[in-house]
């Protein structure tokens, strides 16, 4: 399998951190700006495809990736089940209760007619279980898409499956 030219490698090295940061930004600010868990995870999945193409068949530890993926999904289900403490499955029990972790309140925005339109400035730790679920789904989607890309990449590049 012919090696990628050093130009591609250096560009990937430079842009890896930037794209990764951008993906994390999209995940963490899911409840404030457009984006969210799935979108950010897909961006980082694309980054893994770039890395795999640039540096050839890489020995990724599949066990670690599967563990990350499962923890993401379990945290997602966990927050859903925790909502049961207040009687409803998937109830946002942290939102708007001024609990310092994720409970801070929006500053309301202005009312037009009787509809409150959101203001742009909102605290990051503001929307309770939505942020937690954003991160959980983000984690899960990152690991899932990386697994798919790595499995198929190894299948195509090396003709057999060596990553363990």
């Amino acid at each position: 399998m012919k090696e990628m030219s050093p130009i591609v490698k250096t560009i990937t090295k430079i842009s890896f951190a930037a794209i990764f940061l951008f993906g994390l930004y999209i995940i963490l600010h899911g409840h404030l700006t457009p984006g969210g868990g799935f979108q950010g995870g897909a961006i980082i999945g694309t980054l893994m495809a770039l890395y795999l193409v640039a540096f050839g068949a890489v020995k990724w530890r599949k066990k670690v990736l599967s563990i990350i993926e499962s923890t993401g999904l379990l945290v997602f289900i966990g927050t859903g089940l925790l909502g049961l403490t207040t009687g409803y499955f998937f109830f946002n029990f942290i939102g708007g209760t001024d609990n310092p972790i994720f409970g801070q309140q929006l500053n309301g925005g202005e009312l037009i007619g009787d509809v409150a339109f959101p203001s742009n400035s909102a605290p990051l730790l503001s929307s309770g279980t939505i942020s937690i679920m954003n991160m959980a789904v983000g984690l899960e989607v990152i690991a899932a898409l990386t697994l798919i890309i790595v499995t198929m990449g190894l299948f195509a590049f090396a003709g057999s499956e060596e990553g363990e």
């Binding site: 897909a42 961006i43 999945g45 694309t46 495809a49 795999l52 193409v53 890309i149 198929m152 990449g153």
Partner: peptide
Amino acid sequence: GAGLTTAI
């Protein structure tokens, strides 16, 4: 669409 599908 542009990223992963093309790669696969």
